[in-house]
């Protein structure tokens, strides 16, 4: 579904990512691991089109999207749930969900999708008219995922969904992700939390200083000594 080939990307002319090649098959839950500053967020932002690619190719469902605008990528179903949630704090939960589905391809199915999201995440349903800024971190993460789902994702990319959450919320969020995956959604999970990701993802990439250091089935990545090395920054 997604093929990234020899991607270089970064800020101000200096590459953060060097020659990154990643493949995501339809229906898989793929993990992208790495320590802080390994380039995980840059990668996900390059896929969203917020950070431009310097060279390399990004192909999504057979179409070269390397130079498409962020809007065009959202319309093709590449949806990011950003790190730190980034919900719109002065808007209600309902308004946040509506915004998730405001692009022109999502609009016709928007209210139906919102109903589905509220069924999946009943906590949001009780608080529909509450300002998003007043929610707890875990609730905001649910809202961010819900907002992403209303957009009608074909590929859902989650950037550090467990960051800063209480353990019971982390578990709950991962159950939701697992459930979405079982229903057939393709998911790219970007995480620092090694064990959690290896447990849920079937295939993983490990980034170190902007390069793919290890890749393979989760069980193989788990046992590869380079994985630990990439994490400890040795």
């Amino acid at each position: 579904m997604l093929e990234v080939t020899s991607l270089f990307a970064g800020y101000g002319g200096r590459p953060v990512l060097e020659e990154v090649t990643v493949r995501i098959e339809k229906g898989r839950l793929v993990g992208l691991l790495g320590a802080n500053n390994a380039g995980k967020s840059t990668f996900i932002h390059t896929l969203s089109g917020v950070v431009p690619a310097m060279s390399g190719r990004i192909v999504f469902e057979g179409e070269d999207i390397t130079t498409l605008s962020p809007q065009a990528r959202v319309e093709r179903g590449i949806i990011q749930v950003p790190e730190g949630r980034l919900v719109f704090p002065d808007m209600t939960i309902r308004e946040n969900l509506l915004l998730g589905g405001q692009h022109k391809l999502a609009r016709p199915k928007r209210s139906q999708r919102i109903d589905e999201v509220l069924e999946l995440l009943p906590r949001l349903k009780e608080r529909l008219e509450q300002k998003a800024g007043t929610l707890s971190g875990g609730e905001q993460q649910m809202l961010a995922i819900g907002r992403g789902l209303v957009a009608g994702p074909k590929l859902l990319m989650l950037d550090e969904p467990s960051l800063g959450l209480a353990p019971k919320f982390v578990q709950y969020i991962f159950e939701i992700i697992e459930k979405l995956h079982r229903e057939g959604l393709t998911v790219l999970l970007v995480e620092q939390n090694l064990n959690l990701t290896l447990r849920h993802a079937s295939y993983c990439y490990v980034l170190e200083r902007g390069r793919v250091e290890v890749e393979g089935a989760s069980s193989i990545v788990r046992d590869d000594p380079r994985t630990k090395k990439a994490y400890l920054g040795l």
Binding site: V50, E75, L86, F88, M91, H103
Partner: peptide, 14 residues
């Protein structure tokens, strides 16, 4: 949305 967080707004396809 652009007022509250321009980056998040871009990620919504705005």
């Amino acid at each position: 949305a652009v007022h509250q967080n321009a980056r998040a707004a871009a990620l919504m396809g705005i």
